[in-house]
């Protein structure tokens, strides 16, 4: 970016003319952009503006916006006794899903690079979670986690351990939902990382081998640095996904027990749609906060971490 702007400043006449020519607006371009523009306006920009509008208004019992209330909804949200818990849950949940997803995915993707018989089968298997919908996987995990008849507790008891309230114990529920989420994200991460690994040129390994590098050193000095663009992409994407996670929380815990898995997104849902609440003003204020959080985290990731990314 910096380079581009200094070039523009120091641009010669010819370069300037070229730039101007490039900027001439082709009317036909709008025609081709129209479908995506319409979709963006209808499904992104209009709802966003509507959310801003609603967050400054009260509502009647049906949920219709009524009078302008300024920042009351924001104030109400920030003064709520549960706001700290909700934000903490959101942060912890992201931490507990993003870090394990990426670490495990790197390990698995590296293992899948091994040239052994039947590796194709393993590659396919490791990518399958990607094919599961959030709802399906959550229903299956709910059965695994069941305190009375779940398979996880049966395993524990098989090894002489006491059964655990995976989803019913407030100190464990968030981690249990995170486990489900990691499983869900893993397939996608492994798939993307495998593609990243495949794109690393063989010559670099050959050169490293000639320099006397062993497997571990090659991973450290060749593979991982060249994988940083992929890792960075996955970091941004999985962070956003986990901040916006809804299905697994809804199906596994409905935000419980006692609010232990209520994240910002889930709180938005509860205020707007659950239990006949129809409190769209408060929910919209929360959605705006979520928007700002996602924007901030992504900006920080781009600003701080991208510098360490090694683009070839």
């Amino acid at each position: 970016m910096e380079a581009a702007s200094s070039e523009r400043r120091a641009g010669t006449r010819t370069a300037g003319r070229r730039l101007a020519a490039g900027r001439r607006v082709e009317p036909a371009a709008f025609l081709f952009l129209a479908p995506s523009l319409v979709l963006f306006v209808v499904f992104i920009f209009w709802p966003l503006l509507r959310t801003v509008y609603l967050s400054f208004h009260g509502s009647d019992i049906v949920g219709r916006p009524t009078i302008f209330v300024g920042l009351d909804q924001y104030q109400l949200m920030l003064s709520s006794p549960t706001v700290r818990d909700v934000l903490a849950n959101t942060f912890l949940f992201s931490l507990m899903t993003v870090v394990p997803s990426l670490v495990l995915a790197v390990v698995i993707a590296l293992l899948l690079q091994q040239r052994i018989a039947g590796i194709g089968v393993f590659r396919t298997l490791m990518a399958t979670p990607f094919a599961f919908s959030v709802a399906t996987a959550s229903v299956v995990f709910a059965i695994f986690f069941n305190p009375g008849v779940g398979v996880f507790n049966s395993f524990l008891q098989l090894f002489g351990q006491h059964p655990v309230g995976w989803l019913t114990d407030p100190s464990r529920a968030l981690a249990s939902v995170a486990v489900t989420t990691v499983w869900l994200q893993l397939g996608y991460c492994v798939l993307v990382l495998s593609a990243g690994l495949g794109a690393i040129p063989e010559e670099l390994y050959e050169a490293a081998r000639l320099d006397g590098a062993r497997a571990l050193a090659m991973t450290r000095h060749v593979t991982l640095p060249l994988l940083t663009p992929t890792l960075f992409f996955l970091l941004v994407v999985t962070t956003i996904t986990s901040l916006q996670s809804f299905g697994q929380i809804h199906i596994l815990t409905r935000g419980g027990p006692a609010g232990a898995t209520t994240t910002l997104v889930y709180s938005v849902y509860v205020n707007a749609f659950a239990f006949g609440n129809s409190n769209f003003g408060l929910a919209s204020a929360q959605a705006m906060v979520l928007f700002v959080v996602v924007l901030a985290v992504t900006t920080v990731q781009f600003g701080v971490l991208e510098r360490r990314v090694f683009y070839r």
Partner: peptide
């Protein structure tokens, strides 16, 4: 902290 103004609505 009273937010009495939050919802004052007439149901028509």
């Amino acid at each position: 902290m009273l937010l009495v103004t939050v919802v004052i609505a007439a149901c028509g």
